[in-house]
Simulated scan of single mutants.
Amino acid sequence: MAAAISRWRTYSLPADARLDAPGLIGPNAILQLLPVVERVYGASRLSAMLRRALIASVPDGEHMVPEGDAARLHQLLRIQDPEAAPRIAAEAGRRTADYILAHRIPRIAQTALKILPASLAARGLSRAITRHAWTFAGSGTFRAVDPWTFEIAHNPMISGERSAIPLCHWHAAVFERLYRALVCRTSICVETHCGAQDDSDICRFEIQRGARPR
């Protein structure tokens, strides 16, 4: 990962910049978005986005990062290109899940989940996701409603935003890729309610089994 990280510069924060979000989130919330944004928009656009998002330096991949950094970058993407943002965030989410599969879930555990019936595999995977929720929920409160349904209250990645439609494509893509790899190949994750849609401040994700609609 170090070689990939070195491709991006280190940035200096403006003197009056304030990082007001106290929570931390996993570095992949930023790292996996960078190569996708660079491929779509180019290096100069990426540099400008990092500066505008007040990201002082690219994460080293080994430590948690301020959730405010990740939130600002994702929110900036939604503001600058609302049509492409869902697709870009989803690709970053799939890349995040691939990193988790390659580096965070032991192969023996993956093999065990794959041979279990889907109902039992979903139960095991949902427990693992719950144990590591701090890596993607930050200061938000994560809850597994059941093995196929998750909620994040006070999701920092959409803090302060309002939208008529769900915004958490990165989270949904992470869950979907993990379930497709370890539980059921036809799993799809749908954010059925987003905290940005009203004052409930709850993002709800449901894993469904079946072919993705065309």
Rank of each mutant, 00 (worst) to 15 (best):
M49R: 03
G195H: 06
L33S: 08
C194S: 15
A97Y: 04
C168M: 08
R78H: 10
R162S: 11
S6Q: 15
T186Y: 09
P213T: 04
R7T: 10
T186W: 08
H171K: 06
G93F: 08
I115D: 01
L120Q: 12
R45T: 14
D16W: 11
Q197N: 02
A15R: 13
I105Y: 06
I129A: 05
Y99C: 02
E176P: 03
A70D: 01
R127P: 00
A56R: 14
Q197C: 07
R94L: 02
V36K: 02
Y179W: 12
S47D: 15
Y41W: 10
R209C: 09
R9E: 15
W170A: 08
M1W: 08
I5H: 09
P14T: 05
G68S: 08
G61Y: 10
F150C: 08
L33Y: 02
I25K: 06
L33V: 06
T111W: 14
V40F: 13
Q110F: 05
M49K: 01
G124I: 04
K114E: 09
A56V: 06
A90D: 02
R107A: 15
A112G: 07
D60F: 10
A122D: 04
I79M: 13
T141H: 15
L50G: 00
M64T: 08
T111H: 12
G160T: 05
S6M: 12
M157G: 07
P156A: 09
I129T: 04
Q32R: 15
R107P: 02
T130C: 07
A71C: 02
W170T: 05
G26I: 09
S57A: 15
L125C: 02
H154Q: 14
A21I: 08
T96R: 09
T10Q: 13
M49H: 01
A70L: 01
P66S: 09
A70C: 01
A112M: 13
I207Q: 05
T96W: 08
P147K: 11
H74Q: 14
I79Q: 15
P59T: 04
E161Q: 15
A102D: 13
A122W: 07
R78A: 04
Q197F: 02
N155Q: 08
A133H: 12
C203K: 05
F205T: 07
I152P: 03
P106F: 05
P59C: 07
A2S: 15
L33K: 01
I207G: 04
W170S: 05
E161K: 09
R209D: 06
I207N: 03
A92S: 10
R7L: 14
I100R: 12
E91M: 09
T96V: 03
P22L: 07
T135L: 12
A118L: 03
P82K: 03
A21T: 10
T149Y: 03
H103S: 13
L113A: 09
I25Y: 04
K114I: 07
A102T: 03
V183C: 05
I188D: 02
I202Q: 11
A102Q: 13
R204T: 13
A89W: 06
M64Y: 13
A137L: 08
E67N: 02
T141F: 14
H169W: 11
R214I: 10
L113W: 11
A15D: 13
Q80T: 14
A211D: 11
Q208M: 12
R177N: 01
R204K: 14
A181M: 01
Q80G: 03
E62D: 12
R177D: 00
W170M: 12
T192A: 06
P35I: 07
Y99Q: 09
A70F: 01
R131K: 13
A137S: 15
G140D: 11
S200P: 01
L178S: 03
I158W: 04
